[in-house]
Nucleic acid binder design. Structure first.
Length: 135
RNA sequence: UAAGUAACCGAGACAAUCGCGGCGGCUUUGAAGCCGACGAGGAAAGUCCGGGCUCCAUAGGGCAGUGUGCCGGAUAACCUCCGGCGGGGGCGACCCCAGAGAAAGUGCUACAGAAAUUUAUACCGCCGAUACUCAUCGGCAAGGGUGAAAAGGCGCGGUAAGAGCGCACCGGCAAGCGAGUGAUCGCUUGGCCUGGGUAAACCUCACACGGAGCAAGACCGAAUAGGGAAGGGUUUGAGGCGGCCCGCUUACCUUCCGGGUAGCGUCGCUGGAGCCGAUGGGUGACCGUCGGCCUAGAUAAAUGAUUGUCGUCUGCUUUUUGGCAGAAACAGAACUCGGCUUAUCGGUUGCUUAUGUU
């Protein structure tokens, strides 16, 4: 890898400052939970991914990650879901609480790096208005 | 050096930061937190074979069906592996074989050809006789032609011309003898030839095979609601146990029991035909003995992200050391093991052939 002359990667900046975790209980587990967000939530998309948003004060904020079978084999889909989770994890502290999200990877994200996917997520989060009030 | 062939090895390394999974320890009522070591593959894949394990009856008899098919061995088992035998391919190293039976029977065998399987066959021809211009009758399987295949091959003799008609060699068949555990091989003798191919066509012979699969299966257990276990027993019918039959079993009776089902959770779930090393036996697959090790256990499914240094390859540049830029395949455990097949990056070694140099 070459040198990054402009300082640290965008992925690194917030992580070094805060260091947020993403425990298992904050991740959507059940088929029914996924279906509820898909059906009731609103969706926005760009070239790399689709974001489903469903405000939910009772159950609190949760997040799910998906990569369909059209994208490729198990290795590729696993990698995409890990990239999505990494993007969410590093920015979770900046988002509003009590919102359920699902991030779905699209074909264009298959060969991209973490920084690209994270930038795409941040753009969708801004358009969806789920950042915390001070941002 | 090039081409080929066989076998084997690796799947970038180290460090830092953030994060995830179950495990162990500590704190804690608990939730949770902290610390520690560990955490994808050679194919984890395709699900093509064979086991272990679980339930169905204890997995039983017969038919049907399916599979295997040279010999000997290895193994828990195999359509696997090892060593041979026999064929076939290649100059060679070496590779390939669905390799039982075609004189038990049935079927198929296109086209071409005169004729395609049981007294075989005469189209062009060759020979003899009659006639002598055409032709007719008889003999022939040597030559030509067709075909995947034309009743052994080839040579000499023989003859009107020919023919296993006779003989030598080769091939095949049968018998005998010898070698080998065996497939098979070698030698001798015989009648002279027995009559195409196809059994991933039916079939015959020998051997093997019960079914479903971890979503197997076991446990905890609300609403609701009547069941379960053990024993006994009859026939006509019915349900279930794998396709059918036999057989077994249920509904019937008696006794006993507190529990059965959907959903959710726990177990199954990783210590095993295990891995590594040494040593002994065997040509080898493999087996024995000794020592050491514990090495993923998720369930919308953990094993990731980023950076630095070094290493590999490619390109550009430089007199060189070097510098810069880029690249790194196929691919993700899901009860587990032995194989097969397919995908794919890089490297090492042996051998063979050809060429060159000494």
């Amino acid at each position: 890898m070459g040198h990054w002359r402009g300082g640290l990667f965008p992925c690194m900046t917030e992580v070094l400052a805060v260091g947020f975790t993403l425990p298992k209980k904050l991740i959507l587990r059940r088929h029914s939970e996924f279906q509820r967000v898909y059906r009731l939530g609103k969706s926005i998309a760009n070239r790399y991914l689709v974001l489903y948003i469903l405000p939910d004060k009772e159950n609190g904020g949760k997040v799910g990650f998906a990569a369909g079978k059209k994208l490729g084999g198990a290795v590729l889909r696993n990698r995409l879901k890990r990239l999505l989770r990494e993007s969410y994890r590093k920015n979770r502290h900046r988002l509003k609480p009590g919102v359920q999200l699902i991030l779905v990877a699209r074909a264009a994200a298959a060969k991209e790096k973490c920084a690209t996917v994270e930038a795409a997520f941040l753009e969708l989060a801004r358009r969806g208005g789920i950042f915390a009030a001070d941002k």
